[in-house]
Design a protein around this nucleic acid. Sequence first.
RNA 1: GCGCUCGUAGCUCAACCGGACAGAGCAUCGGCCUUCUAAGCCGAGGGUUGCAGGUUCAAGUCCUGCCGGGCGCGCCA
Length: 563
Amino acid sequence: MKQPLRDLVLQAFAELRRQDVLPADLEPPAFVIERSRSREHGDFACNLAMMLAKPARTNPRALADKLVGALPDNSVVAKVEVAGPGFINFFLGAAAYHGEVRRVLDEGARYGHNRTGDGHTVGVEFVSANPTGPLHVGHGRGGALGDCISRLLEASGWDVKREFYYNDAGVQIANLAVSVQARARGITPDDAAWPEGGYRGDYIAEVARAYLDGASIGTDDDEVTASGDVEDIDNLRAFAVAWLRREQDLDLKAFGIHFDVYFLESSLYDDGKVAETVDTLIAHGHTYEEGGALWLKTTDFGDDKDRVMRKSDGTFTYFVPDVAYHLSKWQRGYGKAITELGADHHGSLARVKAGLQALDIGIPKGWPNYVLHQMVTIMRSGEEVKISKRAGSYVTLRDLIDEVGRDATRYFLISRKSDSQLTFDIDLARSQSNDNPVYYIQYAHARVCSVLRQCEDKGFTFDAARGLDNLTRLDNDHEQALMVELSRYPEIVEAAADTLEPHVLANWLRELAQAFHTYYNSHQFLVDNDRDLRDARLSLAVATRQVLKNGLELLGLSAPEHM
RNA sequence: GCGCUCGUAGCUCAACCGGACAGAGCAUCGGCCUUCUAAGCCGAGGGUUGCAGGUUCAAGUCCUGCCGGGCGCGCCA
């Protein structure tokens, strides 16, 4: 709804330039049209006059008056006021909101979508857990965030590729293999013979048992059968990785997340991409040898010290495949790329970005776009549960889903800004699940469904067209407030997608639900003696249900018809 | 020590990227079910936005310096 107002203001601005009130060569500044916080300030406020006060060398209120005077005739604005330090407040006519209700019913599941992405491809990488253990809550936060961001971008016209990067090469995988081997030999973590750095969790014993039983594991691209031979470390490793990948896949499926691409780190070595990346960096003169190692001059690109790429033993440090991996994303046409990581990885960002810049192939400085999430602290029985891979003590994602449900887990994990730490109180989420915000929103949806069922039971026929013809009957404060809330949805989706912040949508959905619950409690939908009013109210209820459903969908939450 | 990040009501967090009087939920207290689902609604109390400066018409938001929490700082990944 903002754009028509913006156009009007720009026309007024141009008119003042013509009248020499403003310098003829003055370009319009980056002013905003924004929703008013309070009803008395109208529906939208514009700050243009305050921004122009200095270049025009007049006081903002006088300028605001002139801008208002220069506004062209139009049908959207019912009233304009100049207020405060020089705000121009727009009061919209009821027709503007009625039009929005019609749009909701007309566009249905597409309402709120926009075309910002224009069909371009964006790669969204998230979770990317090492296949060395079950997914824990931190992965859950990353998973929920990445998936919701993907959904928001899809709703904004992007062609989204969800991508999972497996670190299936390197030291941790070797550790995994020897851990399973030790378990298969009957060694436990408390024994002196337990390998240094081995994974101590009980799941390792499960893997070992299955290995000794000669089990088979099918993944989408492979089938691994255990030989049962404890000495066969290659088979042990392949079996353990396949096992854990399958476990993680099941967890993600239970969480409602799918990926389009599973990218294996090992493939970067197999097809020579790592070597190619290193060669390119050397060829462009961004490296040097020192102490038997090959260094990348990351300080040329904003890092605080240079980094080793190839160790003196000839192997590469971990960030080299990371650079090769991101290069692969670039080459695969991800003009926009989002990499979602736990904040403990932030130290490596600078060197990966430096590596990408040093390739000299025109990758923009801000590419990829990193989204970091802070730690999740888990409380159980009033105490913090420490996550310790070493001791094998976990709160797994599966535990959470089992205990508090998929919807509640997702909602909890995305309802906070990703860069602030999150406390997940399991007891609270479980014991008070009825007071959980997600149920509050879903309840509003179920209530509309219930009203429609009652409508049928009472023998009323709901005529949506008739309702839309009678929207002028919706004249009380609660109905007005609800319509205003509904009309904000497209702006919320656009803002959340632009800033990659799903919590904006989560919080707003609560406001929408609240506006509906308030309305529901103060007015009857199924008035029996006034069909026009009844249908008008039902139209508004159905529009609300549609927007609730659309919003829940973008967060990957269900929209139940009964509760 | 250096870098990044956060600090808002008793608790958990918002605040539309610089706008008007800082808002919700939980918790506490008080009301509302013979009427569409009370998983709901209405009301009350609760704040020097960690501290001190600066930038400007306007600062929780931007800049500087402190204080405090978290994370990172390896030829580990």
